[in-house]
Amino acid sequence: MSLNNSDIGGEAGSPVIDQVDTPAADTVATMARQAPVRLPETVRRYLVRVLALLAALLVWHWASSRGFNLFINFENVPGPLVVGQALIEALSSADFYLHILHSLRRIAVAYVVAVVLGVGLGILMGRSRLAEDIITPYIELLRPIPAVAWIPLAILMMPSEESSIIFITFLGALFPIVINTVHGVEQTPKVLVRAARSLGASNAAILRHVVLPGALPSIVAGLAIGMGVAWFSLLAGEIISGQYGIGYFTWSAYTLIQYPQIIIGMLMIGGLGTLCTLLIKLLCRPLLRWQVGENDR
């Protein structure tokens, strides 16, 4: 092709150049059309997420300002602007931070106890059939009971109001952590245990170097779920409290018919729960560095 072109080109130069040029120019044009300014993949995905939330805000605003009422009734629901105003007001009062602080402290205490006990029980159950057979029925029986249902018993059994709230929060976080730990421990590849044994590892060394790190991805998933459920249960627990806590804040807003405050409380619980879950994931990430590339196989 090119040989032919240059042969002809000796005789009549410009038409040949045109012929060659046209497709090239076309390609450039296509490339320019296909490649506008490209955002990095992660930025683009987060942008979509933020836009999705903004869209919900817009729908909310539209529905509440129009008094939308078709099966779902928005007539008495305060719009985002009202709620935003109330939020600014709340953020400038010291009491609001006290509520948050109390909730965070309860979450922290309950969560730490749940992690220690949950991971410990999970390892025990994953390693010993007897322990698993003894503990499993309790977990199966207690797990479906919602946090709210625990309130009376928690009040009866626990020495103080504070400890009963923490107990209910702890119960919420405990079960997902135990179940995921058991699952992770039981999934330990046999070949790795054999390899460790033939390299001279003791049972304790196998637990520390093989079983635990192998179970870690599953444990971390349990920790993240547990954090979510902890917030979820906290609200139920704080109904007991007559003083502080974001759950109490929401509950008292409901009894006082302060609608914007209810929504603020709800959003706070959602936001703080998300942040805490994110924090757990970030804290655990360095431990799971080895998984990079594992899924590409």
Binding site: V191, L192, R194, S198, W290
Partner: peptide, 15 residues
């Protein structure tokens, strides 16, 4: 440890 073992595959500690 006097008998070293090499397995078919996936026997390294991935972590």
């Amino acid at each position: 440890p006097d008998r070293g073992m090499v397995f078919q595959q996936h026997s390294l500690f991935p972590w």
